[in-house]
């Protein structure tokens, strides 16, 4: 028999209540139950990275995460990346600036992955960026520009920190 459970999730800093079957993944909960369709379904089996979002600031695949598992955790999706005034995150701007996408379908996953990649300290060289962005497939073939965008965004993200150190 189909049963539903009540979940109270913290998504992009907002509390969201929903009733879903226990088997519903975080990805389907976002897209089908919470109208947050920015997170994409590319393969639904952990093979493409399009569904990447952050749970407690770590990048994960929402297609292999149950919605029920993230109760009590902080979920961030592409919709929660720009600031409250709509000012884009440095990675988002860099993706536009360096044409790091074409069709745009893998893009939210790429961007969520890139934000985490920089935060993890895995954007130290182009080779490292390539390896640590390899969990996000892009069939349009924007890889060169993704590497440039991540590299440039990493500089932009770390710039204020350096200024503080100097001061």
């Amino acid at each position: 028999m189909t049963r539903t459970i009540h979940l109270s999730l913290d998504i992009n800093g907002e509390r969201r209540e929903l009733d879903v079957e226990p088997r519903v993944t975080l990805l389907d909960a976002l897209r089908d139950h919470l109208a947050l369709t920015g997170t994409k379904k590319g393969c639904d089996q952990g093979q493409c990275g399009a569904c990447t979002c952050h749970v407690d600031d770590k990048r994960v695949l929402s297609c292999l995460t149950l919605a029920a598992q993230v109760e009590g955790r902080q979920v961030t999706t592409i919709e929660g990346l720009a600031d409250e005034n709509g000012v884009l995150h440095a990675v988002q701007s860099a993706f536009i600036e360096h044409d790091a996408f074409q069709c745009g379908y893998c893009t939210p996953g790429q961007i969520m992955s890139a934000v985490a990649c920089i935060r993890e300290g895995h954007a130290g060289s182009d080779a490292e960026i390539r390896e640590y962005m390899s969990g996000n497939l892009c069939r349009c073939g924007a890889y060169n520009n993704i590497v440039v965008a991540v590299r440039e965004a990493a500089k932009a993200v770390s710039a204020p920190a350096r200024m503080v150190e100097v001061a």
């Binding site: 990447t52 770590k58 990048r59 695949l61 292999l64 992955s113 895995h122 969990g135």
Partner: peptide, 9 residues
């Protein structure tokens, strides 16, 4: 192994 997302999970 796998990808960073999967390794985080």
């Amino acid at each position: 192994a796998a990808s960073q997302q999967l390794r985080n999970m």
